[in-house]
Simulated scan of single mutants.
Amino acid sequence: MKKEIRLEKIIPEYSTIEIKQKDQNVWVKSIVLNVHGKFIEVKQIEQFLSSAVMAGDTLQCMVIDEKNIYLMDSTVYNIKLITGSIVLEVHDLKTLANERKHKRYNALLSATFHEAGKLKEYYSVVLNISLSGLCIITNCELKQGDIIEVSINNPDTTLIYLQCVVKWSVDQGQKKLYGLSIEDIDEKNKFLLTDLIDKLEMFEKNQIKQLMESKPEYIF
């Protein structure tokens, strides 16, 4: 018998939740307005409108706290125009131990990498990053344990150079997601990475503040 989902025990109201459509790679943030049983009510955001999210659509959700990462598959149950919110019905919940040393921040940064000892470079996009790791998407084949040299295009300054090891991979059709752990970084690049993380943290704080303060927009 499938265990009953009681989300109010793990997801506090007015916490942040990350959501994406199943065929997308980028998570977007929203605010949890209400939680009851297997239902979550979240704030309507611009990305839901631009993607024309409708009742019955499938969305993936993620909530992270200090100890756990909660991954949820959900269906859009209802869209409330007056309150500017969307009600999601969660039908699958996975709980993973949060083993990350540092908080990850969403980012869309171009990057290249090459395997240690090889010259050929491959293009990738950094989807999220922290002081100890990052997630990239690329069409290159890598194996768990591979050591790669990564160059990240930092829009505000010079390239950031890292040596990383591949920890995991997930197929995304013709592309793959790779989780990388930063194994070696010199002081100069550590300073550049720290500065980038500080800016991403500030951007996220401002984004959450705007979400908390914004009122629903009505379109007639």
Rank of each mutant, 00 (worst) to 15 (best):
S151E: 15
Q210K: 08
I82V: 15
N154F: 12
L71H: 09
D92L: 06
N153R: 13
Q210H: 06
T83H: 05
E66H: 05
E141I: 15
I197N: 04
I152A: 04
Q47D: 13
R104C: 05
Q207M: 10
K176A: 13
D171L: 06
T112P: 01
I86N: 07
I185P: 00
I185W: 02
I136Q: 02
K167R: 12
Q210F: 02
K188P: 00
F220A: 15
S30I: 05
K94F: 05
R100T: 06
N206A: 11
N78R: 09
I10L: 10
K175L: 08
V63C: 06
I10Y: 07
T58L: 07
E66V: 08
L71W: 03
I45F: 00
V26F: 05
S132I: 05
I136E: 04
D65C: 00
D171H: 11
E41W: 01
K22S: 12
E183L: 14
N139M: 11
F39H: 12
E4A: 10
V150P: 04
V53E: 03
Q144A: 13
Q174L: 08
E46K: 09
L71T: 14
E18Q: 05
T158R: 06
E41A: 11
K103E: 14
H102K: 07
E115L: 14
R104P: 04
I148W: 09
S51M: 10
V35G: 01
V28F: 04
I64G: 13
Q174M: 13
N189E: 01
K199L: 12
E46S: 08
A107R: 04
I31V: 11
V26P: 00
D195L: 13
L192P: 02
T138C: 07
M202S: 07
L162A: 14
I137E: 05
D57S: 06
I11A: 02
M72K: 08
S130T: 02
P12N: 02
E217M: 14
K38N: 14
S169K: 11
E121G: 11
A107L: 11
S130N: 01
K80I: 07
P155G: 10
L81N: 15
H114W: 01
I136L: 02
Q144L: 07
V90I: 15
G179P: 06
I148H: 04
E183G: 11
N34V: 11
S30R: 00
